[in-house]
Nucleic acid binder design. Sequence first.
DNA 1: CTTGACCTTCAAGTAACTCGAAGGTTTATG
DNA 2: CATAAACCTTCGAGTTACTTGAAGGTCAAG
Lengths: 139, 139
Amino acid sequence: MRIGEAAALADVETSAIRFYEQSGVLPAPERTAAGYRDYTDEQVDLIRFVRRNRSLEIPLDDIRQMVELRIRGEAPCGVVRKVMAPEAAAIDSRIRELQELRAELKRLQTKAAEITDVWPEGPCVCHLVEAESGSKQED
Amino acid sequence: MRIGEAAALADVETSAIRFYEQSGVLPAPERTAAGYRDYTDEQVDLIRFVRRNRSLEIPLDDIRQMVELRIRGEAPCGVVRKVMAPEAAAIDSRIRELQELRAELKRLQTKAAEITDVWPEGPCVCHLVEAESGSKQED
DNA sequence: CTTGACCTTCAAGTAACTCGAAGGTTTATG
DNA sequence: CATAAACCTTCGAGTTACTTGAAGGTCAAG
């Protein structure tokens, strides 16, 4: 199949696929007589594999190593363990971070709603952010 | 105070402060005789304001507008509301995304632990990712 | 008076893509 | 068969939010 279909199946943009290939994360596929990239189902799986890892915010450099090993059929345990553990920790802390942000946002929204309630045209959300930003030295 | 202290207080890197100034998000501070940037406490608050907004993943372009209004003391309600509402939605969906990722990661880690349990030197985490990536057409 | 920590500017690099230009191919339709 | 729309190609540049490095100025301590 051509790149458009592959992209649709793997849920990435065609430009991203070309970028992955160009940066050595994905192997170059066969080409049709006309020079179009021609992907097999397996290769679509590989693209999906990359996309899935990316959605875990694993850097392309790490994914490249995993893809290489996966293609060679070698046991990637070592690399994957080395790569996976720190990534896991990183993602966990990232999530904790974002959860705090969500809590903060919730507070902001609540306050904003209250204020909008009291002064429909009145003093604004910006003061909330200022308050948040100014008052939390111990952040 | 000089940029180093300001950066420490606002919990950002000095290079980021210079970058914010250069890209028009922060106003240029006074300079000492020697040409060093000289920040007041208020300006540190402003830096903290920016950092705080950034930590909510609000783009600098939006922050710039809020900062401008904040400095002029104008009622930023319109802008802030326009900026805040979509940002809030974006952050919410980003968090939902990441929570899914966390769930996925948890599953991966659990499986990885199980496998490592059974074969301490054995087949690896990579197959998990492959399994995850290959089996979820309906993702 | 020199060492080291801090500051300056400017240019270039980074990640992970996206976008646009200029052009070739394939497919559907009249 | 013509031709227009939709798809593909490469290449280079742009994006965001910074960081890093080079080359050099300044200031406090020993």
